[in-house]
Design a protein around this nucleic acid. Structure first.
Lengths: 241, 241
DNA sequence: TGCTTTACTTGACCTACGTCAATTTAGAAG
DNA sequence: CTTCTAAATTGACGTAGGTCAAGTAAAGCA
């Protein structure tokens, strides 16, 4: 599947405190708060090999998931039968929020690399515990953030799409406290092209072009943002929509 | 602003029971349930003239809004200073859900026609009433639906974009119990082009093309879906993503 | 009713990107 | 190390849709 040399450059799991699910985990008693150290949660922990599915579109929704390590792609299958990538997700992000309204998941969630993630079974949220109101409030918070922030990569020129994609990745790195200018692309060019609604050749050409212009520095799946800051200002407002 | 002959073809307000906010309105005691008849809610009712703003991006978020009548566009301003349309909203839909996580609204909400909408001040949701858990649950439901259903019109060929746009409108008509094949476009060609990330000439040409092929029947801002059902099956899975 | 303005349509031309095809590069296996 | 395979790059060429420009129709107003 994805080649991604994972064996040697394995990145440690994200700390619970940097995870979007943190508040909810604590409220549901799933994990003891660890004050900063990455620590094994007490709840169900799932591991996936590259290419394995965390859940499938149409499967009854049973839990929320938080990514601890690795990257997951959300995909749908078009009427013509080909895969369409909806989004990529990195450590600290929560999947399966549609569970509260749909009976089933709406996308396939596929690991791009070795993935580790926490599972919060839905029944946790229907229990009539004393904390329920607090949990609900935290959920409302989480969901509200998810509706507000919707990057849209299938807009503008190929160059804008690629830049927006890289800058979005960079921003997410930064939000989790990682180096925002040194990216490791865990997805293939084909998967990027799919997300951006363009072609693999266009992604390749555009990356090389940006490389030649010294805006970025590309080498395989490693990308360093060099003069992207200037383009950043330009594209920043575009990304969130 | 938008021309839209509104004086004569005024459409009556939507019934509360067909509104996404219905459950929440009842729980917050804002409106007495009316069992089906469209009835004036007891809460704050706002009216807007075409071109007027319900709220602006960056303004402190103070309330949730439900559209009773008319169409609203959500827009953002790009770094280059031009407007980008994020979505159009029709009666029964709820605006401002980002309020629970952001302190401010993230888009401008502009009326395309005379608009009437209900306002639910945010303080309603922070009151520690006995119902609070139920209200929160209803909110989670509403938000969860909003994250699950994300049409994406800036993908594929011009023809696909236009069809997806029309079919999405049609579907929303249907969901509120209106005739799904007889559409009245309350937005200009320019606004459609903006949403679809294409040009006004392309929208025009594509509509005329579809008209020639008898897939739809266009006459100004009235569109009848004729043989769209066949294309519908094809595009149905595309729309929601 | 005609006049003015703005929205929409249509045509001609051009370019960014898609398509097809040939290399080159980089992991994986031996 | 070499071989094998899949991913990525690069080139040549065609086309959907962007751009520019000229009509046409319809809404608002005297």
């Amino acid at each position: 599947m994805s080649k991604t040399s994972c064996a040697r450059e394995r990145i440690p799991p994200i700390a619970c405190r940097a995870c979007d699910l943190n508040t909810i985990c604590r409220l549901t008693g799933l994990v003891a708060y660890e004050g900063g150290r990455p620590r094994q949660p007490t709840g169900a922990l799932r591991t996936l090999r590259p290419g394995a599915a965390l859940f499938r579109a149409g499967a009854p929704a049973s839990a929320l998931f938080a990514i601890r390590q690795g990257t997951i792609k959300l995909t749908r299958v078009t009427a013509e039968g080909d895969e369409r990538i909806v989004s990529f997700h990195t450590p600290g992000e929560v999947l399966g929020l549609e569970a509260f309204s749909m009976g089933a998941y709406v996308c396939d969630a596929i690991a791009l690399e070795p993935v580790q993630c926490c599972e919060l079974p839905l029944p946790l949220f229907s229990d009539r515990t004393a904390q329920r109101a607090e949990i609900a409030a935290a959920l409302v918070q989480l969901l509200s953030r998810a509706v507000a922030i919707r990057p849209d990569f299938a807009r503008g020129s190929a160059r804008e799409r690629v830049m927006n994609f890289l800058l979005d990745l960079s921003q997410r790195y930064a939000e989790r406290g990682l180096d925002a200018s040194e990216l490791r692309l865990s997805m293939s060019r084909l998967e990027i092209a799919n997300l951006l609604d363009t072609r693999i050749e266009t992604v390749s050409r555009t990356l090389q072009q940006l490389n030649r212009e010294q805006v970025i520095h590309v080498r395989g799946n490693r990308v360093r943002l060099v003069n992207a800051a200037s383009e950043l200002a330009m594209a920043a407002n575009e990304r969130s929509a």
